[in-house]
């Protein structure tokens, strides 16, 4: 499946040329002449990356970036600017932009950065998927299993868990093996990672 690249630029020629380049390079470009249109078309589930012009009427690139963050749209962002300046670049990168390129950008360089952004998106997607999976695994645990897991990942031995919860050593062992099984953990370390990701507190 072709990867989507959102192009947001108020200059029609730029949209057309970049779109052409991207489609020939095997991407699926989606162009917007204004940030509003773009915001209306993407969501938290959007995949791919976005190329945003910094200077646009009514809403500049930085404001758009803030809006994307506010809406939890995690698309990797490449900024394009007709004239870049360092503070603007630093601000954009700090806010999470993948890149900040100054027009005119070499076509190959742009494609490289698009590729990198797509990879980042893939990576992001895998992580999201894993997190979603982990969370669904933990969701299957019973309350008692959850208690056992919490004590186990905090370093308690089975005996200690049994004493703490006032249940038999044998019961702890059964709960524990079920937890390992349900969460797909091969080791206590695995389990600890999954638990930490899901319940940072």
């Amino acid at each position: 499946m072709k990867k989507k690249v959102y192009v947001v630029d108020d200059d029609a020629a730029v949209r057309d040329a970049v779109g052409m380049l991207l489609s020939i390079a095997g991407y699926e470009p989606v162009s917007f002449s204004s940030p509003e249109e773009f915001l209306g078309a993407c969501s938290q589930h959007s995949r791919g990356c976005a190329i945003l012009d910094v200077h646009m009427p009514f809403m500049d690139g930085a404001t758009l970036q803030q809006e994307l963050i506010r809406r939890e749209i995690g698309l990797p962002v490449i900024f394009l600017s007709a004239y870049g300046n360092i503070p603007m670049t630093v601000r954009a990168i700090k806010a999470g932009a993948v890149d900040f390129l100054t027009k005119p950008v070499n076509a190959n360089l742009l494609l490289e950065r698009v590729e990198a952004a797509i990879e980042q998106d893939e990576h992001r997607h895998v992580e999201l998927e894993q997190a979603r999976l982990n969370s669904s695994r933990l969701e299957n645990l019973t309350d008692r299993e959850r208690d056992v897991m919490k004590l186990a990942v905090s370093g308690c031995s089975n005996k200690e868990i049994a004493r703490h919860l006032g249940i038999s050593h044998r019961t702890v062992e059964i709960h524990r093996s079920r937890v390992m099984q349900k969460t797909g953990s091969a080791s206590l370390l695995d389990l600890a990672r999954i638990a930490a990701e899901q319940e940072p507190d």
Binding site: D11, A25, P104, L110
Partner: peptide, 23 residues
């Protein structure tokens, strides 16, 4: 600034068209 803007837009478009054609 206006020159930069006015020139960079078409130049960037040319660069992108050019890249597409080469590819």
């Amino acid at each position: 600034s206006a020159i930069a803007h006015e020139l960079n837009q078409p130049l960037f478009a040319i660069s992108a068209y050019n890249g597409a054609a080469i590819r």
